[in-house]
Write a protein that binds this DNA or RNA. Structure first.
Lengths: 159, 159
DNA sequence: CTTCCTGCAAAAGTTTTGCATTAAC
DNA sequence: GTTAATGCAAAACTTTTGCAGGAAG
C-alpha cells in the first residue's frame, strides 16, 4: 500500500467512527509507518516534541477504535503501537528478552494456514470462539547477541 | 508432577539462587498450582488476606528469577502469573477480548514441532537468536459467548 | 457558531522501593 | 545471633480524565 493510499484509508476509517483526521493523528500514523515496528509512547513523544502526552494516548485510543492501529503489550511495563495488520502485512514479533526491542517478522503463508487451522480446532474444543492469533518469538536480537559475543571475547582475552 | 515433587523442585530452584522457601512463597506456589491458569495479583491477595501486596510483588519477582513462575502481560493493564512451563505442561493461551480472562490450551506435539522449526528458521533469517515462543489465541470465551447469544436472543424476543 | 480536538494539570491504577520489625536458620 | 523476608507506607511510573482554550468544519 502506498503512503497516499494509507492516509486515504485512515481518513475513511476515522470518518466511519465519527472522527476527524487531524494533524496530530496524521503525524502519529506517519511515525508508525516510518518506524515499521512497534513503537512506545515515549518514542512517539520524542519524535514530535509539540505533541502532548495526553493527546498521544487519546489519539492512539481513537485510532485503535477506528481499526487503524494495534496496541500490544510487552513485559516492559508499557504499551507499544503499530499500524493494524490489514494496513501492513500479517506478521509476528521477535521480542528481545535483553533489551525489550520488538521487530516484525514475516512467515510463509503455508505456515499461517496450518497454524490457523490447528489453533481454531484447539480453541473450539475448549468452548472458545477464536478470532485471531498472536505469535511472539522470544530470544536475543542481533545487537544484544553481538554485545554478548563481545563480552565473552573480552573475558577470553583477559584470562 | 505431583504436588510434593513440585514443592521439592521449587525449593531446590530457590536455593540455587540463594533464596528460602518461606510460607508466603509456598502459599503463592500452591495458589498458582490450584488455579491452573494465569492469575492476577488482586486474585492472589484475595486468596490470602494476610499477604502484603509488596510481598506478593517481591516474591513473584524472586520466583520468576528462580525459574518457578512466569509473568505474562495481557492488555488488561496488569500482569498475570503462572507456574513455569517445565513445572506444568507446554501450553498456550486463550485470551478473551471481552472479559480479559486467560485460559490454558494444549496443542498436539506435532504442531509444536512444526511451529518451533518454522519460527527458528524465520527468526535466524532476521539475525535473531530464538529461545522460546508464545502463542495466544484471541477471541471470545464460553461465558462471554453465551452472554452474547443471550443478548441477541433477548433482542429478537423484543422485536 | 457549534462541535470536536488539544494541552495542561491532576487523578487513578499498577508496580517498586525504604525502612523498621519479624521470622528463618 | 545473624541474615533474609515481611508489612506498612510512600514513591515511581504508565495511563486516564477534567477542564478551559483553540482549531476545524
Amino acid at each position: 500500500m502506498t503512503s497516499r493510499d494509507l492516509h486515504r484509508t485512515v481518513e475513511a476509517r476515522l470518518r466511519a467512527v465519527g472522527q476527524l483526521y487531524t494533524r496530530n493523528r496524521r503525524a502519529l500514523v506517519e511515525a508508525l509507518e516510518r518506524a515499521g515496528r512497534p513503537v512506545s509512547i515515549p518514542d512517539l513523544l520524542a519524535r514530535r516534541r509539540t505533541l502532548a502526552q495526553s493527546s498521544a494516548y487519546r489519539n492512539l485510543g481513537v485510532l485503535e477504535q477506528a481499526g487503524v492501529v494495534h496496541r500490544l503489550v510487552t513485559d516492559e511495563g508499557f504499551a507499544r503501537f503499530e499500524l493494524a495488520e490489514d494496513l501492513t502485512e500479517h506478521h509476528h514479533h521477535l521480542v528481545c528478552s535483553t533489551c525489550g526491542s520488538v521487530e516484525d517478522v514475516a512467515v510463509p503463508k503455508s505456515f499461517e494456514r496450518y497454524v490457523e487451522r490447528s489453533l481454531v480446532r484447539a480453541a473450539r474444543r475448549a468452548g472458545f470462539s477464536p478470532a485471531d492469533h498472536r505469535i511472539d518469538v522470544i530470544g536475543t536480537c542481533r545487537n544484544c547477541g553481538s554485545a554478548n559475543r563481545d563480552r565473552l571475547a573480552d573475558n577470553r582475552d583477559r584470562s
